[in-house]
Design a binder for these strands. Structure first.
Lengths: 334, 334
DNA sequence: TTGTATGCGTTATCAA
DNA sequence: TTGATAACGCATACAA
């Protein structure tokens, strides 16, 4: 592998000048630049990334922690992040946190140890205090899908409460009044915020929420199916169910089908996230669109702006979802 | 940030010794080790990754190129890779190739420029010759889901031909004889191999394949839906359809439903891949299981063994899929 | 078992 | 506009 020395030698200029044309960091006369460029080409020169990082104290890498690498949600998010980072010549190091506190902490340490210039974090098991202390230590990071008051400008989040609200409101507007809710694990803030939104919508329509109509599940389809079983078994009758995410909605629909109940004729189902698959279930799932790709883009832009000082980048911290009408909800008919 | 010098000074031992306890590369007496460890803790020392890479000529990073970051297939694959790499202290840099030749080449160059110790490549747009020349240049890489004779020991692949064969054979065994096929884009080797398998199975049952029963699509659900429309419109009657992947099967099922045809009562549908979602479609999709997570694991192990000289690792290069029976296929009844 | 000295390939600070 | 030269933080060959 050719080094900058060899380029310097072959082109007859100094080390420093080669570095200059490499980085465009200072004016270089056209003729010398020409010579250097040729030498680089001839030698098939590639700068050594580690040496650059060491000397410049900048690794040009961003670490990203997501709960899981698979699943449509994180896939779209990583995709959004990667595309803008890539266009900026930065690279993305990924790690999975598995929604487990120890694992998330380990992953963060791992990413830190790799010398990332900044971290993009989607964490749910770790505490606010931990994150705050990280911030105190000077670790550069941006949180996705989580909001901490004290470091608002480091949080890119969805208004989950609003999402939960419009989901249930869409059901109410369609005439439903007895609405069940299958929530995600309530220790996760997004899950509990969505449920809050549901309650707010219900309250707005003068419905006090019956606790038996709410089931706390785990964001998985199995969990959704289980929740529906339980609801069907023990809850008062209902004509619609809102789910904390799409996957649970899939499970719920399967469970309904197993009970010979038709969606949406007998029961309307509302999801949350708008996974790519929700357009291909049967019936196609009416849900709340989560602009996860956009939020991924924004997280990457945050890093470009705050870490790499790229100017002229419009940052946005709060995203609002909207309802996507498809076929799993229909007006209530007695 | 504390450096090794400061640790050396504070613990009263030499630089070299600190490095030794850091890497466990040579014997160090317990007392000195103790002093060093304490100093590290007191100073909250973290080795500088770039410096380590520069000095050791090893970045401890693996670059991975996948077609897309989203979608169940690549998600599972990355997940498999990450977990074993992570356990070994190596990190994963990811990039998307978008199944486009220029983009794939750019991504490979990008990854190379980042100093990855090795590359895990899922590419389909780039030519064998290109890959071979890369190999000739000394670039370390392993191919996933692609086989090139000349560098077999660098290829971890699924027997797609066999998969296509068992998919159609399952249909034939169920009594179907008039079987349509919705293929992926045939310039992709996996798509064409699967189709080959289909033809082999048909031939084995004495059926010569009617070209009108084969539709070349694009691996997307939309494409699958389109293919089914076309088949319904212009092909001779058929009682079953095998699809090049699950996503096209989803589209095909939707399209059948739109035509008031029931799956599997009127038409049986067979997928390929066993996406996580295939267990939640309606009807649940009978398909061919692609052990993509296992293959991801293996790709990572390949790197551990071949690049980092980790011994005692069993490598496997060929994976065989199997049929997963669910609800979208049923015995043919006149 | 420990220490010394050198090199890894850049960037960056000076001068010239 | 260019060139010396000193960091950057660590690994390692060699000596002790």
């Amino acid at each position: 592998m050719a080094t900058i020395y060899e380029v310097s030698e072959r082109s007859g200029v100094s080390l420093a000048t080669v570095s200059r044309v490499l980085n465009g960091t200072a004016r270089v006369s056209d003729v010398t630049r020409q010579k250097v460029v040729e030498a680089m080409r001839d030698l098939n020169y590639r700068p050594n990334s580690a040496a650059q990082s060491l000397a410049s104290n900048c690794s040009n890498s961003i670490g990203m922690l997501v709960s899981e690498l698979h699943g449509p949600f994180f896939g779209d998010m990583m995709s959004g992040v990667e595309s803008v980072l890539r266009a900026a010549g930065k690279h993305l190091i990924i790690a999975a946190g598995h929604s487990n506190e120890t694992s998330e902490k380990n992953s963060i340490e791992f990413l830190r140890s790799k010398g990332c210039d900044a971290l993009i974090l989607h964490v749910d098991a770790v505490s606010d205090d931990y994150l705050l202390s990280l911030h105190g230590e000077g670790v550069k990071f941006v949180l996705v899908n989580r909001r901490i008051e004290a470091i608002q400008s480091h949080c890119i989040s969805l208004d989950n409460q609003y999402g939960g609200y419009i989901a249930t409101k869409a059901l109410l507007d369609a005439g439903h009044r007895d609405i069940a809710y299958i929530a995600g694990p309530l220790w996760k803030v997004d899950a509990s915020e969505r449920l809050e939104g549901h309650k707010r919508a219900m309250a707005e329509f003068g419905r006090n929420v019956d606790a038996r109509l709410i089931y706390e599940s785990d964001f998985s389809s199995q969990g959704g199916a289980l929740g529906m079983e339980k609801l069907l078994d023990t809850a008062p009758t209902f004509s619609a169910v809102a789910c904390g995410n799409d996957e649970m909605a899939y499970g719920a629909m399967n469970s309904l089908r197993a009970h010979k109940l038709r969606v949406p004729e007998d029961i309307s189902v509302m999801g949350f996230d708008n996974n790519i698959m929700s357009d291909y279930t049967f019936p196609r799932l009416t849900t709340v669109d989560y602009p996860v790709g956009d939020m991924g883009h924004m997280a990457a832009k945050w890093a470009l702006h705050n870490i790499y000082q790229q100017p002229k980048i419009e940052l946005r911290y709060a995203f609002r979802p909207h309802v996507v009408q498809r076929d799993s909800v229909r007006p209530y008919a007695k």
